[in-house]
């Protein structure tokens, strides 16, 4: 009750009523009657398990207030993370070819190899993320990716140590170290090589 809204007569009535309560005799069975009412009352709900409390917290709609500058900063973080992810995982296979790139499949017959990767000018000569898949039935190693148009030099790196040129490449050229690099030509548009 909001006592600020009570008028003076109401306050007097309340005070006298409370005084009368003190003079009343509750009766000998007062305690039993009280306990009886408590016993018939509906039980309190059991405390929720921790996981249920967490789920309830997560599911409850909330209002979050963010300034425009804050949302821009968050968006910039997200874009940077996405850009880094795409940059780090260029060899990842996906069903969709990114715009401006053309699908390319590398194939090497190396049945005795334990591991084969493609390294070249398109991935900084780094094997991470460019490991080829092996088909034990045929002994073929394959990797499908997407590359920009132009000329790309590459080799297959067998078992992490041995560079091998592609016998099916358009050209094999001097790598400057006394060995050879294979050359892959990727054309614009429909992804076929010249």
């Amino acid at each position: 009750m909001n006592t600020e809204r009570l008028t003076e007569p109401s306050k007097d009535e309340l005070a006298s009523g409370l005084r009368r309560l003190g003079a009343m005799d509750p009766g000998p069975d007062f305690a039993a009657r009280v306990m009886g009412r408590i016993g018939t009352a509906a039980p309190l709900p059991a405390p929720k398990r921790r996981m249920a409390r967490v789920i309830g917290w997560l599911m409850e709609p909330r209002t979050i207030r963010v300034s425009p500058l804050g949302s821009l900063a968050a968006a910039a973080c997200l874009l940077l993370a996405l850009g880094l992810f795409l940059k780090i995982n260029p060899g990842a296979e996906s069903g969709r070819t990114p715009a401006g790139l053309s699908p390319v499949t590398f194939v090497l017959a190396a049945p005795s190899a334990r591991e084969v990767a493609v390294i070249g000018s398109f991935n900084g000569w780094k094997a991470a993320g460019w490991t080829m898949r092996n088909d034990p039935a045929t002994g073929l190693w394959t990797l499908t990716t997407a590359l920009p148009p132009g000329s790309h030099e590459y080799v297959f790196l067998v078992d992490g140590t041995t560079p091998v040129t592609d016998a099916a490449a358009a050209l094999n050229v001097d790598d400057g170290f006394g060995s050879r690099n294979s050359v892959l030509l990727v054309k614009n548009g429909d992804g076929t090589a010249l």
Binding site: V104, V107, A168, L184, T192, A193, L194
Partner: peptide
């Protein structure tokens, strides 16, 4: 350009693509 030369020589882009199953 090179496209016109392909036509002049009677070739198409398909003709100049490497064999199936190889690097494209």
């Amino acid at each position: 350009g090179p496209g016109e030369l392909l036509q002049e020589l009677g070739l198409t882009g398909r003709d100049t693509r490497q064999a199936p199953g190889r690097s494209n």
